[in-house]
């Protein structure tokens, strides 16, 4: 159980980071495209990266007793 859980955690961490970057970076890119600016994509990517890392922390890093019994 433990090893499967750990591998699953790693893959889902990657999924979270990727989707965070893609969603918010994509929104920033769309905003850039629409407004003709160049910095929204960077802001979006930083925001998305930060948010997804926060999500990873919520899911996997919270509390040392943690590793909620899935």
């Amino acid at each position: 159980m433990a090893s499967g859980n750990e591998e699953g955690a790693l893959w889902s961490i990657m999924g979270y980071l990727l989707s965070g970057l893609l969603i918010w970076g994509g929104l920033g890119w769309a905003a850039d495209h629409w407004l003709g600016t160049h910095f929204f994509v960077l802001i979006g990517m930083l925001l998305g990266g930060g948010a997804s890392m926060y999500l990873v922390w919520l899911r996997f890093g919270r509390g040392s007793t943690g590793s909620n019994p899935k």
Binding site: E6, A9, L10, I13, M14, L17, L18, L21, G49, S52, M53, V56, W57, F60, G61, R62, G63, S64, T65, G66, S67
Partner: peptide, 19 residues
């Protein structure tokens, strides 16, 4: 149980840079 969250967060940070 102590090391696991730390390792995962470190992995997330490194992985975020790659992505």
């Amino acid at each position: 149980s102590v090391l696991q969250p730390i390792a995962f967060l470190g992995f997330a940070l490194a992985e975020a840079l790659a992505l």
